[in-house]
Design a protein around this nucleic acid. Sequence first.
DNA 1: TATAAACGGATGAAATTTGTCCATAACAGA
DNA 2: TCTGTTATGGACAAATTTCATCCGTTTATA
Lengths: 162, 162
Amino acid sequence: MKLSEGVEWAIHACALLAAVPPRAALPTRKLAEFFDLPLAYLAKHLQRLSNAGIVIARKGPRGGYALARPAREISLLDIVEAIEGRSPCFSCTEIRRRGPSGAPATAYRRPCGIARAMWKAEKAWRAELARVSLREIQAMGLAETPAAQVKKATAWMETALS
Amino acid sequence: MKLSEGVEWAIHACALLAAVPPRAALPTRKLAEFFDLPLAYLAKHLQRLSNAGIVIARKGPRGGYALARPAREISLLDIVEAIEGRSPCFSCTEIRRRGPSGAPATAYRRPCGIARAMWKAEKAWRAELARVSLREIQAMGLAETPAAQVKKATAWMETALS
DNA sequence: TATAAACGGATGAAATTTGTCCATAACAGA
DNA sequence: TCTGTTATGGACAAATTTCATCCGTTTATA
């Protein structure tokens, strides 16, 4: 049960995009540079964010990515689902129907109780992720980062956008 | 973010073991037969349950597996962790320290806010799993299974133990 | 028109999951 | 004590998924 590393990349990328001034955009190349990540692979993840409508892409010179809506309206769940997909972590293969005491699907009244319990837990996980906005993530990042680094990052952003 | 199929197998196996009378034990071969699963691989998962102390193993003829404690005292979380391990789903690779505005670990006051948020959600998931006992799973199984199948399973169990 | 950027398909490498096999140890019953 | 049965754990193989790169195409800007 492992989340792909891309989730971490995507959240960090979105948090950085939250700091981009309105109308401006950061290209993949700059994002990869900021986090020292492989450009081509990061691009794949950004495409997913784009397809999910979390981020808008502008092609051509001075193009790049920007948040599609205010950071307050983007949740961690949005980002996680954009990268990992929306299918449940636990998939029920209907083991109960197999073996000597099994029966065809029509025989059972409800979905398997095991699956229901697992899905309920998953729901709690998603609910918790949905409660956290990118805005809060951004604020936490600012609070935990030393002033010197914040300054560096701000300076970097200016040259990246110019 | 996928749970291994072994989790499903393990929970079903434990639920069946919960129906085994005291002092008796079900060998891997019988469990594999009941669920129509590959014996050798199922054995691996049962070993994990054994190592985790959820199940006790008895070697030799008339041996096999039995629950190590009452079903009421075994949670879904116990089983999931026995199979999947206890390490967090989200692993923080500290990408905030990389790139042009990064700094060594000592510079940061707290763990990364992104990781904290992800871990909090994970905690909610685990808490939900911890709330469900094998006893409840067993009861749900009984409620959702047609009487004919329950009968078949009971008969199967008798011959399996004789 | 030249350039910079996203897009998406193809492909390859690495890691993980899934699954088998076997040698060994432990145990019950004859 | 002997025999057959079972768990244990290591080695190994196959399949799947994740990680990563490359390239041709499209789109937009100056």
